[in-house]
């Protein structure tokens, strides 16, 4: 596997986990569904984060192969994927805080 694969999988995992967190903050039904899986919504989101990272690694490996190169998957893209990881993490972080602030102000 090329080094960029790990940054790519981390970006996808953060995006997926962040999206689930944002949805469950906005929707009590989704939060309850997550709580029904493991007993607590936080444990479910934690499990999703860990599993999605592993799955993304496998998926990227299967789809792109160990050495295969294309526009998305080159060793040189490690820098690009690390920047993508920062942008996705920042967007999710601001989004989560923004939703909690809005909910607090509205309560």
């Amino acid at each position: 596997m090329r080094a960029a694969t790990y940054a790519m999988a981390a970006t996808a995992s953060v995006a997926l986990t962040g999206a689930i967190v944002l949805i469950h903050i906005a929707s009590p039904e989704v939060k309850q569904s997550l709580a029904n899986i493991t007993g607590h919504h936080w444990t479910a989101v934690s499990a999703i984060s860990a599993i999605s990272f592993g799955l993304m690694l496998v998926l990227i490996y299967v789809l792109l192969g160990p050495e295969k190169r294309n526009g998305l998957h080159k060793s040189e893209d490690l820098l690009g994927w690390s920047i993508a990881l920062v942008l996705v993490t920042l967007a999710m972080t601001f989004g989560i805080f923004a939703l909690y602030v809005v909910q607090y102000m509205a309560a």
Binding site: M1, R2, A3, Y6, A7, A9, A10, S13, V14, T17, G18, V21, I25, W42, V45, S46, S49, A50, F53, S75, L78, L85, T89, M92, T93, I96, F97, Y100, V101, Q103, Y104, A107
Partner: peptide, 29 residues
């Protein structure tokens, strides 16, 4: 309502990022 709720959810990104850094250093190009 804001700090703890934000902390517990944003933290979840951190283990994935830390493991990705370890993997890049373990299997560098």
């Amino acid at each position: 309502e804001v700090a703890m709720e934000g902390k517990e959810h944003i933290f979840i990104f951190l283990p994935v990022i830390a493991v990705a850094i370890s993997l890049i250093l373990r299997f560098p190009d």
